[in-house]
Computed example of a mutant assay.
Amino acid sequence: MTTSCVVVTDNDAATKAAFNKQSHLTWLSCAVHDANLAVKQTLQSAALPNEIKVAIEACKEIVRYVKKAQLNSKLLELGKKSLKQECETRFNSLWNMVRSVNDAMAALPEVLPIERRGGLPKLTKPSFTELISILSHFDALTRELSASKVPTLFLKPLWKKELMKLLNEKSKDRSISAAGQKVASMLMDSVESKVQLQTLHFCATILHPQFKYFVQREYGAECHNEAADFLESKMMPDCAQHFQDLLGDGIEDCQRQPNNLLGNSSSEQQIPMSHVNIWDRIQSYGCGSSSSGLSEDFTAFTSHAEELASWMCVPERKLEGKSILNYWREQKHHPILAATALFIHSIPCSSIPSERLFSVSGRITADPRRSSLSADKLSKLCVINSFKKNGGKIE
């Protein structure tokens, strides 16, 4: 395949430029890095409402003191969780910090000495809890888009659109403070500029039976047509050529028995999504017919355009608990499109899973007793660690 390797990284200019120079590589921005940049840009802006700035600084001061004075144990004795310190290299760490302070608010007067309680009144304003509520949606985004067991690439356009709608609603909600409305408006502008959508994201959404018309409805016909053209002229021919190279003349048999080409596995497990407002809104899309509307007989298509057009004529349908990968593995009617969909849905939306693996390898090599580990043995230890986290099962 010409598009044989897709690289997902953060938006570092040097990294992006290096990958874009490689003709055989396709670069995608990490969705979680994008969202984190949007939050960071907003909260570091000079235009941020002063009462929000003051509240954040008060949180940082309280957390620093509690850590330094080793008072987290007293919070635990009072039935509260320990306070979380902000760390710029960790996603949503500021939200985790302000939320931990807010959760421990009732116990802080008992823990802090009198001279350290001056910052507490600054955390009682409605804008502080509104900030926590707004940032919670970015935490939900991080959790959903950094999943490693299920496809996530198709979710980025959905999450961006719904996040923009939610922030727009908050920015006009007169039941919240002016500072809360201002933060929501600033975050909306940051999300629009920082969360990048590329053609492959739209392709993945089109190749999901529940959301295939979402791009056209929410992003317009131009984005939809560009993604469809890319599928027809680039991805499908590449996939067809790839399997032709692998199987030679056997490709025709595989087209008529697509399980030979795509694999036949029913072991895929869908991780339950968290019940967050924004995800519930996304799930409401795609209320079409539950049947595919296709006959059981295989139809031989004369062109990739005809196969794609046939797929687009099928009504949207919910998967009813079935994995998107298993859906395409069992797809008998569109063999080349199914192979293309499996390739695209194997691309992660975020680089977080691989970064977690780097962290595991770092913890292993940090042990001085393992300073002479070979690369092969380190790789095997990382694989074993992953298996253990997944319940000892190969995913």
Rank of each mutant, 00 (worst) to 15 (best):
A375P: 05
G392W: 00
V383Q: 14
I324Y: 02
I52T: 10
K40F: 05
K40Q: 14
L166V: 15
T2E: 15
T199L: 09
A179S: 14
Q216N: 12
K393E: 11
S136H: 09
L342I: 09
I132C: 13
S374L: 03
I364G: 05
Y213I: 11
M1E: 11
W279L: 13
K182A: 15
I364K: 07
F214V: 05
V191W: 00
R217K: 15
K170W: 12
S359L: 04
Q244D: 10
D253M: 12
D139L: 15
G263Q: 06
D297I: 09
W27S: 06
G286V: 01
P209H: 04
H333Y: 07
A18E: 04
H242L: 13
L78T: 04
M105H: 11
K332S: 10
S146K: 05
R256E: 15
R256P: 02
D34W: 06
S177Y: 01
A305V: 06
N96Q: 13
S386D: 10
K84R: 10
P368H: 07
E330W: 00
P335M: 03
P258K: 06
L247I: 06
Q210D: 05
L166A: 12
K60F: 00
A338N: 07
F154N: 13
I282Y: 02
A18W: 03
Q210N: 04
D367G: 08
K122W: 07
Q41C: 10
C382W: 00
R369D: 02
P348L: 04
V8N: 06
R317Y: 00
G263E: 05
L94V: 14
Q241D: 13
A184E: 03
K122P: 02
S351D: 09
I324D: 01
G180H: 00
F230Y: 12
I114R: 15
A104G: 08
S133L: 14
P209M: 02
T129F: 10
D229M: 09
T340D: 02
N11K: 10
K60R: 12
V98L: 11
H224L: 04
E306Q: 11
D253S: 10
D139Q: 15
E115C: 08
P368A: 07
S82Y: 05
A147I: 07
L207C: 07
S127C: 15
I251G: 04
S379T: 13
K318E: 14
H224I: 00
L337V: 07
D280W: 06
E232S: 12
L43S: 06
S354H: 08
L112Q: 07
P272F: 01
S146F: 00
S290H: 03
V7D: 08
D249G: 07
L123V: 06
F230V: 06
C30P: 09
V183W: 01
V8W: 03
L75P: 03
L78A: 12
V383C: 12
L378H: 01
T89W: 01
E130L: 06
M1L: 10
K160W: 02
N277P: 08
Q196K: 14
K122N: 12
S93D: 02
F298Q: 09
V383M: 11
I176V: 12
V7A: 10
Q255E: 12
R117T: 08
N50T: 12
S386R: 11
K318C: 09
L357K: 11
A375D: 14
F343D: 12
A38W: 04
E226D: 13
S386L: 06
V7C: 09
D229Q: 13
A184N: 05
A31M: 04
G321P: 02
